[in-house]
């Protein structure tokens, strides 16, 4: 379902504007599926969903598929509603060089919450 992420981000002028100083490679891992995402000045310009072929990333956010599914429910349950709730409980791992993440927190939080909008993201499709 995350193959819809670039269009969802890039069609939001406020989100792109918020990330205008951000250029970074990061990895969003859903279960065993790595999503390598390249952001250039706030826009997602590349998304690879192919298992992570020895690509570099500054930081990675990883959780089990069932955890992301609960996180992406339109009204998530307590403990599944925020990335830091997940990392505190051990349901998700945030690792690597966290500086680009921490200095663009609102941008990344809004990005990874986008799949809660079921009009943009189907529960079917590649990548989980």
């Amino acid at each position: 379902m995350l193959d819809a992420l670039p269009a969802a981000v890039n069609s939001r002028p406020q989100l792109v504007h918020r990330g205008r100083f951000l250029t970074v490679d990061f990895r969003l891992t859903v279960g065993a599926v790595a999503h390598d995402i390249h952001i250039h000045q706030g826009r997602i310009t590349d998304l690879r969903i192919d298992g992570g072929l020895l690509r570099p990333w500054r930081f990675q956010i990883a959780a089990a598929r069932e955890v992301w599914e609960r996180f992406w429910e339109p009204m998530p349950a307590p403990g599944y509603h925020d990335i830091f709730a997940l990392t505190k409980s051990g349901h998700a791992v945030l690792e690597g060089d966290l500086l680009p993440f921490m200095s663009n927190l609102r941008y990344f939080k809004e990005m990874i919450a986008l799949p809660r909008d079921t009009t943009l993201f189907s529960k079917e499709g590649s990548g989980g």
Binding site: H81, D82, I83, S103, R106
Partner: peptide, 25 residues
Amino acid sequence: EWLNRPDVHGGEVCAGLISGLVAPQ
């Protein structure tokens, strides 16, 4: 340490950290 360092905007990181403590409702 994230809360007060010259390479991260203090207000943005404070709000960004605690934003998820607000209930989604």
